[in-house]
Design a protein around this nucleic acid. Sequence first.
DNA 1: GCACCTTTGTGAGCGCGCTCATTTTTACAT
DNA 2: ATGTAAAAATGAGCGCGCTCACAAAGGTGC
Lengths: 205, 205
Amino acid sequence: MRISEQAKQLCRARILEKAAELFAARGFDQTTTRDIALAAGVAAGTMFNYFPSKETMAMTMVNEALARGREEFLTRLEGSESLEEELFLLIGTELRRLRPLRPFLGPVLERSLSPFPRKSVCPEGETARQEHLECVRQIMQRHGFSAPREDVAGTIYWSLYLGILAFWTGDDSENQEASRALIDYAIRTFVQMISGNVQGGPHAR
Amino acid sequence: MRISEQAKQLCRARILEKAAELFAARGFDQTTTRDIALAAGVAAGTMFNYFPSKETMAMTMVNEALARGREEFLTRLEGSESLEEELFLLIGTELRRLRPLRPFLGPVLERSLSPFPRKSVCPEGETARQEHLECVRQIMQRHGFSAPREDVAGTIYWSLYLGILAFWTGDDSENQEASRALIDYAIRTFVQMISGNVQGGPHAR
DNA sequence: GCACCTTTGTGAGCGCGCTCATTTTTACAT
DNA sequence: ATGTAAAAATGAGCGCGCTCACAAAGGTGC
């Protein structure tokens, strides 16, 4: 059976929608792939023609939210922001879009955005990292930074970003003041670092 | 059957030893609990009287290595080090002890040291975090720092530490120059931050 | 309308980590 | 020695994510 591209995308979207509902209602680990298949009205095996793994389903939602956050960030930019302000705005809009997914983010990001090297990483996690870092790189370029020592600065930025994501994921307080303070501090620390103002240390000459 | 405490510890040690060998030889994910049971000469179910999960077995090894690293750190201290030098020495000795476990660290630390909140976290991972942070806290106190804003500074330190661990875990180069540079940079960044030298930013007055 | 081929759907079943009802083994009181 | 109860070992089996051999369902040439 050959099916139209439209019907295929419709089926894919229905699976994703039902998966999102179940993840939000019960959590990622408490939702089985058989549950999702049942809710979407397909056989258990059929889902895996559309998504190679349960993890991929969740990270597809995450990447879409992040991408829309970055789009919104670009429209909100006024050009008068400092580097710190732009990074704060970027992360803020990303988090706003991630908000509906927050009830089930923990296990998903733990698996897919881990900084630790693995044999079989979920490719969507790698995509998320690359696209966020590319956006940050563009912001830095706009402000005249060329990010010396790419590996080192990139790794440290990503560590801080993951720390922010993790803290925010667990921050259930009303207005998330703690998260805002943490983001502020992390961004300032990072900008300070790439400004070359962090000097000295055990092995500096 | 009631067994002597000695025999119990011996059995526990044999399971841990065989598990370590298999993890190192094939990797964590490629080693099944049935493999370990067979190698240790016990039934599949028996292992779970000694360790509640496969993950716990691995993190037990990690925590032991980290603890011995911290012991060695204390003996190596000469009292003349700067804060940066002490932190560098601490992390260096920890990593040296972790070295034999490095072939299978990735999946283990990804699961157990994740900064993301989870329902059923491996308690050994929490132990690792607390004991390392306690050691860092003592070092900071020795140098006259009281770590203002405990949540923020602690979270950022832990993010940087995880970044270091992750980078080092994947760093197969001969003398690990890249890792040394990263550790240097991360420590300097952190010390700069807690020194209160990081100021300004989008929401500072 | 019919045979043919490709794409898509299907669900039994695999291997995994882990559980639990049952059996076996031991220390100890007698 | 013997009986007893608790501790420890056992392995069949569960539920999970995921695979794969096969069936069903279109589009295409005649």
